[in-house]
Every structure is written in C-alpha cells, then in structure tokens.
Simulated scan of single mutants.
Amino acid sequence: MTSGRRSVEEHEQHVAALLRPLHEKNTSRVPLAHALHRTLAENIDAPIDLPPFRNSQMDGYAVRADDLSSTPAILPVQGVLAAGDAVAALAPGHALKIMTGAPVPDGADAVIPVEDTRIDGAGSVVLERRVTPGTYVREAGTDVRAGEPLLPAGTVLAARHIAALAAVGLTAVPVRPRPRVAIISTGSELVTAGGELGPGQIFNSNGPALAASASANGADVVDVDHCHDDPDEFVKMLDHAVKVADLVLTSGGVSKGDFEVVKDTLGPRGGEFVSVAMQPGGPQGTAVIDGVPILTFPGNPVSALVSFEVFARPALRAAAGYPPAPSRIVPLTADLTSVADRRQFLRGRLDENGVTPFRGHGSHLVAGLATADVLLDIPADITSLEAGDLVKVLIL
C-alpha cells in the first residue's frame, strides 16, 4: 500500500509506535564477560565490603605507630607478608615486611614505605620517619560497604563498571535486552566487498553500514544479507529474517522505478510506503510480517544512513536502555541554503567555532559522509541561514 506525503515528525511517531514492542522484552542475566555496553536492568548493591579486609597501600613495613616515638628507630623484622597471605599478628616492638595489597597484621596500625627505611645488618630495619595510625592502611569497606549501592539501574556498562562488579565477586548481572536486528540490502548492481566489479556494478556499503549502526546503538545484529532484484529471493530472505530478528532493516527497492523489489513484495502484504518531507531519505516504508516490524530505507548510501539516524536509532537506543543520541545547538561558520518544504539533514563538521556544512549534498556521496561528524537538522520552513545563525546538529 502506498500513501501520501508525511512530515518527518509524523513518520517518527509512526515508527516509534511500530517499534514500541522492542521496549517490552524481559530482562535477562548475562555473564560479566559479555556485559560490556549492556544496560543494567536493576540496581546493584555490593554483596561484600570493598576492600574486604585491611590491607597495605604500599610496599614497606607494618608497624605500631607508638613504637616509633623517636626516629630513626630500629626494630627487628618479624617476617614477610605477601599479597594473598593469611592475616598475621605483629609482636610488640617488631616490624613486618609487607607487600602492597597484603593484609595488615593484627596489632599493626600503620605502614612505612620501603623508601623511608634501610636494612640493618643484624636482621632489623631502620625506620627513618614517624607515622600516625592509619598511614598507608586501607581499611575494610572504605571503597564500598556490603549492602551499599554499587551501580544504579540504567547504567550502560563500561570497563570501569565491569571492574567494580568483578571486584565484589559478581559473575552475572541483570541487563536490558538488546534488540535482534536483521539487515537486507537489495540491488542487482551490488557486489560484496572482495568480489569483482562487473559493468554497472558497485560495492555494497549499505549492509555493513546499517549493521555497524545497529550494533553501535544497542542491537545484536543476527543476520546481514544481500538480495538481487528478485522477489522470490527477497521473500526467502525476509522469511528467514523475521524468524531470527525482532526488527528487520532493508535498503533499496522503495522508490518509483521498475524493479522496486521491497515495495513490490511488501505492498501486497500490508506494507505502507510514503514520501517523507526530508532530504536525503524521502522514500520510506514500514511493514509487519509475522509480528516483526520492518523499516525500509532508500538505497542510496547517504539516504540509508540518514534514515537510520532519524528513524531507527532513537528506538533501538531506547529499547537497549541507552540514553538518547546526543545533539547540540551551535553557530554556523558559513552561509547555507536549504530546499523549501523539506527538512534537510546536511552533512557537516564541528570545531571550536561551530559547524561547517559540507558542499555537495548528493545522497551517493558516501566518502564525503565519512568525513562528517554531525548532521545539520534544518527545519522544512527554513530556506537560508547565515554564518553565526544557530542550528541543531545530530552527533554521528
């Protein structure tokens, strides 16, 4: 089915409603080794004190501070404590050589760094500075106490969070589900990188680009396929995709040509194809097959990626528990003109002075897109702006 023209805002609302079920999947527990970039679904409290015992902050000598009433002091060395040793007891008037991380012995209340000592030939150590109780001693629970909050729900786990979770002994954590996404790029002119280009052929960039975009925004990419302009081949790939994915993204085959395999196949199966008042990325479509939503994007590489940024990225990030994609309001560094009645998403680059729009806005200029780091979001009712005017930019 083909309907009329939509604004970007109308199509955003349509897509958001279509993809709302992605947000309703159940929480799962994953091993800590697989939790990087996942979003915590629940608050995590520390199950143990951290540190779990008093330990030494330095390589040096554990002592009683009162035994160093005057310096230099000479104390017999009782023994050596390494990290991982059992807790010992320090005899009065003695020192225990101790390594960083080793348990501070009972009776000791301070550590003197090794650089403030020297060895006496008679099995004793010369301690050349006075210390106060607690010097270079890490007390149990000074990082976090058992039962105290460690990480809140909604945390997108980075390496520093994995370190904290591992330090308290957790092996698995509850996380938000990652939507499973399948990608199908269409076009008989496309060749997979590594193949040989024939006359009229180009390498397929949409499949890898959409897969990378989905993965970067919280999805698990479960399938990446390329289909020729053959309806039977497309149906076969689509039937597989909806079995393994929560969302299918397609590129190409949605315009007004003679070989629009996506539109020709999905239209009779309830698909809806519209012209969205935007540039690039005007031809858009949606469908639901066997309960799985499908977003169909144009085939030009820039159009496909801009379509993902505007329509798919917000829903995927929300489903994965990621914060919204960043945007900023910045000044233009150069004048620009924009097409009337179409919301423009122009490529540009940020620096300390603002944003510079690129010259040349063809939807095939994928190498030019690679040098951009933002999209300038120009409203449909704006036809020109001057240097210094403020514009919204979407961070790529």
Rank of each mutant, 00 (worst) to 15 (best):
P199E: 11
P199S: 07
G200L: 10
G200A: 03
G200P: 06
G200V: 00
Q201T: 07
I202L: 15
I202N: 08
F203Q: 05
N204C: 11
N204V: 07
N204E: 15
S205I: 05
S205M: 11
S205Y: 14
N206W: 09
N206Q: 10
N206D: 14
N206F: 12
G207K: 02
A209M: 15
A209C: 15
L210S: 02
L210W: 11
L210D: 02
L210M: 14
L210T: 01
A211D: 06
A212V: 00
A212W: 12
S213F: 10
S213C: 11
A214F: 14
A214T: 00
S215N: 08
S215R: 15
S215C: 04
N217T: 00
N217A: 09
N217C: 13
N217F: 06
G218K: 06
A219W: 04
A219Q: 03
A219C: 05
V221Q: 03
V221K: 01
V222H: 05
V222S: 07
V222C: 06
V222F: 06
V222W: 03
D223G: 06
D223N: 03
D225Y: 11
D225G: 05
D225V: 02
C227K: 02
C227W: 05
C227H: 04
C227M: 01
H228K: 07
H228A: 13
D229V: 13
D229I: 10
D230A: 05
D230E: 13
P231L: 00
P231N: 05
P231E: 04
D232N: 08
E233R: 14
E233V: 12
F234E: 02
V235E: 11
V235N: 09
K236A: 13
K236W: 12
K236G: 06
K236L: 13
M237E: 03
M237S: 07
M237G: 02
L238D: 01
L238G: 01
D239L: 13
D239Q: 08
D239V: 00
H240W: 15
H240Y: 15
A241D: 02
A241S: 09
A241Q: 02
A241M: 01
V242C: 06
V242E: 02
V242S: 06
V242L: 08
K243M: 14
V244F: 10
V244A: 05
A245L: 04
A245T: 04
D246F: 14
L247D: 05
L247I: 14
V248L: 04
V248M: 04
V248Y: 11
